[in-house]
Amino acid sequence: MTQIFVEGGVVVPVTLIEAGPCYVTQIKTEKHDSYNAIQIGFEEAKKLNKPDQGHLKDIPAVKHLREIRTDDVERYQRGQKLDAGVFAVGDVVDVVGISKGKGFAGSVKRHHFRGGPKTHGQSDRQRAPGASGATTTPGRVFKGTRRPGHMGARRVTVQNLQVVLVDPERNLLAIKGAVPGANNDLVMIHKARKQ
């Protein structure tokens, strides 16, 4: 992330995203595949395995393939190039990515538990979750109780982020705010579903 200046000298925190060039690699239709979608590919690949060589035989080799559900499949053709220019400044978008993995995290970090008291004779209780079950009835911990466990490294969508800058030449998007994942991670950007 960085920050840039917009009109009136206002500072906006932005995430820079290399958005494209993407290629439409496959079009799925209701008739043929029983649902409508387009498949797009991104990032130049040096080597492809045999199945991908066949799949992308008349299209530039790409590393990543992702499917986007849309009923508007007639607008797209196989091999069509999509770049950052499909977005305009001021658009509101959702960004989907894989969040940073936090490993096995305690309940304070994972669920914002408050932890125990620091003083009054406490030992080993500062980040403890407290009790998680009841007594003989029910005699077990309910499913879904918030407990320590693996955190992060899952699909996260950040909704309603604003596009601040578009540079189709460099395929660059600047999106206001933070997006899921580490630097250089793959994200998917689409028009905001709930505006």
Binding site: T2, I4, L16, E18, R170, A174, N183
Partner: peptide, 13 residues
């Protein structure tokens, strides 16, 4: 990514 950031900073400087 660092390249992207430095390039955009150059543009706004």
């Amino acid at each position: 990514m660092v390249d992207l950031i430095s390039s955009i900073e150059e543009q706004f400087k």
